Simulated assay, not measured.
Amino acid sequence: MLQGAGVVSLSGISTGAYATGIEPFRQVVTRYAIRPNPAAPWPAGLRLRIAVLTDIHACDPWMSLERIAGIVAATNALQADLVVLVGDFMVGQRYVTRIIPAAEWAPVLGGLAAPLGVHAVLGNHDWWEDPDALRRGGGPTASGTELTRNGIRVLSNEAVPLATRAGPVWLAGLEDQLALLPVRRRTGRGRLGLHDLAATLKAVPDGAPMILLAHEPDIFAQVPARVALTLSGHTHGGQVRLFGWSPVVPSRYPGRYAYGHVRERSDLVISGGLGLSIAPIRLGVPPEIVVVELGAEAVA
């Protein structure tokens, strides 16, 4: 019995050491090949390679400036047509040795490059860690200001056309769905988020191909079939994922929008992200750069 207990104890210690000391610093590239739903307009023959970065949570020692620079280099090496950043650049936990301010991490991300540009939306922690923006109940935020200053277009309930060889493809970006949650908890009133899906979609001409960026995936339950692809983060894949199951998922639909490719009326990809939130642990869901080949033959 003592020998068995010892084995179990050592196993638990080794797993914990891996989950805090190794997996959070790993980095993988996860690829999806998606043919848009027939209900979504998409130019015949057009194939876009999209690199997706999300949930960086800049801080020492978990996501240092040097590590962010390595992510930028790895992303550029993928030669994507488009690079998108889907929010949560700011730290999301207390177990850090230094919070890295936006004025330091944004210039590093400014090294990202792609023919169709580099675009971003904000996440909940970009609001929650910005007391001035919370007090105002609106922007500008430190994250948004510094990203813009370093050449990255930040979309807030708006859309822009991308000039592809097959004509314009619209990129729409939704403002965060939980932006004002700390204020609401404190006062008991007011809005939860600053998102406006109807206004965001209205900015795209009828019948035009469209990609949507939304930090939290829950909005996908309301996304119409005309959107070819929605890209999200936020969940970190549960940050602990065992045999395809995550015990804790920050979503109203934890069994529905936890991680990976989801097809309903249209297509959603939820990235497991790169950094850490709440606790410094990752197990079964290593930090990832996501690459989506949109317009490609779907993977069986």
Rank of each mutant, 00 (worst) to 15 (best):
N124G: 12
N124F: 06
H125S: 12
W127T: 03
E129Q: 11
D132Q: 14
D132S: 05
A133Q: 10
L134N: 04
R136E: 13
G138F: 00
G138Q: 06
T141M: 12
T141E: 11
A142P: 02
S143H: 09
G144E: 09
T145S: 15
E146P: 01
L147G: 07
T148I: 01
I152N: 10
V154H: 03
S156G: 05
S156E: 14
N157I: 05
N157E: 13
N157H: 09
P161N: 15
A163F: 14
G167P: 08
G167F: 06
P168Q: 13
W170Y: 14
W170K: 03
L171D: 10
L171C: 05
A172S: 14
A172R: 03
A172I: 04
L174P: 02
E175D: 15
D176K: 02
A179Y: 09
A179Q: 12
P182R: 05
P182K: 05
V183G: 01
R186P: 02
R189A: 11
G190A: 07
G193V: 03
G193P: 03
L194R: 12
D196C: 01
D196T: 00
L197Q: 07
A198W: 10
A199M: 02
A199Y: 02
A199R: 14
K202L: 08
P205W: 15
L213W: 10
P217L: 06
P217V: 00
D218V: 00
D218M: 03
F220L: 07
A221N: 04
A221P: 01
A221I: 09
Q222W: 02
Q222S: 09
P224T: 10
A228V: 03
A228R: 02
L231R: 01
S232R: 11
H236Q: 06
G237L: 06
Q239K: 01
V240D: 04
R241C: 08
L242P: 00
L242E: 04
G244I: 00
V248K: 00
P250M: 07
P250D: 05
S251V: 03
R252H: 11
R252P: 00
P254L: 09
P254N: 07
G255H: 14
R256G: 04
